[in-house]
């Protein structure tokens, strides 16, 4: 989250991704940087114990959302 926020502040488009159990934490982090409406993406939790094929599948599913957020920005 913080990396994404800092990239955006530097004018570089970014798409932060959390797993769903960290959505509240992501919002709290954005809030602490004065960005309560900061947009970010969410994946089902957990990911650390997925196989490579399962991870690839997750990446394929979320890729269009990443592209959309990068193009749309935080406006």
């Amino acid at each position: 989250m913080l990396d994404g926020i800092l990239f955006e502040k530097a004018g570089i488009p970014a798409a932060s991704i959390v797993t769903d159990v960290f959505e509240g934490t992501g919002h709290a982090m954005a809030q602490s940087w004065g960005l309560p409406d900061y947009k970010f993406l969410s994946l089902p939790h957990p990911i650390a114990n997925l196989s490579e094929a399962q991870l690839d599948q997750r990446a394929r599913e979320i890729a269009p959302e990443i592209v959309k957020l990068l193009l749309q920005g935080q406006e």
Binding site: F22, A28, S32
Partner: peptide, 10 residues
């Protein structure tokens, strides 16, 4: 610092 359990203390 806002380190609240469940939010920024996980």
């Amino acid at each position: 610092i806002g380190t609240l359990p469940g939010a920024l203390d996980r």
